[in-house]
C-alpha cells in the first residue's frame, strides 16, 4: 500500500509489521489447526482417538490406517470412478464452453445478444428447480446408476465458463482472425488453432474450477448413483460415514484417514496451480 518503504524503517513501522505478523500467525494457525488435527486423528489407533488429553503426535503413528481404508471399502474403485467422471466432464466442459464462447465473442448473428443474456440469466436459476424433471428424464433413459447424468450435461456448455471464456476471447486482437479469414481459413480452424492456443490461461482456470467442482460434487452422485461399485470418492466417503457412525464400532481414525485421502488430490492440485486459481477467482468476482 505504501508507495516505497523507507530505507531504515522507523520504530512505528516495525511495530506495525510485528503486530501484523503475530495476527497472521494466530489466524492462519486457526485455519490450519483442523487439518493438522485431522492428520493426527488419521494416524491414531482406535483408542488414541478418545485419549484425554489428546496426543497430537501419536505414540506410534498408524500408517496402516490408510491401507485399512482400502480394505474396508472399495476405495480404489471410487477413485477410478471419480477420475473417469472428472476427466470426461473436463473434456466436455472445455470443448463445449470454449466453442460457445467463440460464437458469442467472434461471430455476429441474429439474436446473439438476446441468446447471451438468456445464457447469463440461467446462472441465477437454482439447480433444484430442474433437478426433479432431470432425474425423471434420466431415469426414463435408463441412466440411473450410470455416470451418464453426471457427464453428458457437461458437453453442452456451462454458462459461467462460457461467460469467463468470452470475456477472455474478447481481449484477443481480432486482426488475427481477420487475417486468417482472408487467407481462407474456416471458423473452426480459427477457433482451434488461433483462439484456443492464445486462451490457454483462461482454459487452465476453467479446467481447474471444473476439476475441483466435479471432484467435490456430492449432490449429483447422491441422486444418480445408488450402487457401491459406481460411487465416487465423495459419495463413498458419505456412505462410509453412515456405515461407521451407524455400526457403533468406533473407527473414527479410519474415517479421518478416508477423509484425508479424499481431500489430498485437491490440495496437491491447489499447490501446483495456485496462481491460476487465485487469478481466476479474482477476475470471476470482479466482472
Amino acid at each position: 500500500m505504501a508507495a516505497r518503504p523507507p530505507r531504515h524503517p522507523d520504530f512505528r513501522t516495525l511495530l506495525r509489521s510485528g503486530a501484523a505478523y503475530v495476527l497472521l500467525m494466530v489466524v492462519s494457525g486457526a485455519f490450519m489447526l483442523p487439518f493438522v488435527w485431522m492428520l493426527s486423528m488419521s494416524l491414531q489407533d482406535a483408542q488414541g482417538v478418545y485419549a484425554v488429553p489428546f496426543r497430537w503426535v501419536p505414540p506410534s503413528p498408524q500408517w496402516e490406517n490408510y491401507a485399512e481404508v482400502f480394505r474396508l471399502v472399495p476405495f480404489a474403485r471410487y477413485l477410478l470412478n471419480t477420475v473417469v467422471i472428472t476427466l470426461a466432464v473436463l473434456i466436455g466442459t472445455l470443448l463445449s464452453s470454449s466453442l460457445v464462447a467463440y460464437g458469442f465473442s467472434r461471430i455476429r448473428f441474429r439474436g446473439r445478444d438476446l441468446f447471451f443474456a438468456v445464457c447469463l440469466s440461467t446462472m441465477m436459476l437454482p439447480g433444484q428447480v430442474t433437478m426433479i424433471p432431470l432425474y425423471v428424464f434420466f431415469a426414463r433413459l435408463g441412466w440411473i446408476d450410470t455416470f451418464l447424468p453426471l457427464i453428458v450435461p457437461a458437453f453442452f456448455g456451462s454458462p459461467f465458463y462460457i461467460f469467463l471464456l468470452r470475456q477472455f476471447f474478447m481481449t484477443i486482437p481480432r486482426e488475427y482472425d481477420e487475417a486468417a479469414l482472408l487467407d481462407g481459413a474456416g471458423r473452426l480452424r480459427i477457433y482451434w488453432s488461433i483462439i484456443l492456443p492464445q486462451a490457454r490461461p483462461a482454459l487452465i482456470t476453467v479446467g481447474l474450477f471444473t476439476f475441483i467442482g466435479t471432484w467435490n460434487d456430492f449432490f449429483g452422485p447422491l441422486i444418480y448413483i445408488n450402487s457401491t461399485q459406481n460411487a465416487t470418492l465423495t459419495l463413498g466417503l458419505s456412505m462410509l460415514k453412515t456405515q461407521i457412525v451407524g455400526s457403533g464400532v468406533t473407527q473414527w481414525h479410519l474415517l479421518m484417514a478416508a477423509a484425508m485421502l479424499v481431500m489430498i488430490p485437491n490440495v496437491i492440485l491447489f499447490f501446483i496451480a495456485q496462481r491460476h486459481l487465485v487469478k481466476g477467482i479474482a477476475t470471476g468476482g470482479l466482472r
Partner: peptide, 9 residues
C-alpha cells in the same frame, strides 16, 4: 485452502 476442500471430507 479450506474453501476448495471436499465438502463431505
Amino acid at each position: 485452502l479450506p474453501s476448495i476442500a471436499n465438502i463431505v471430507a
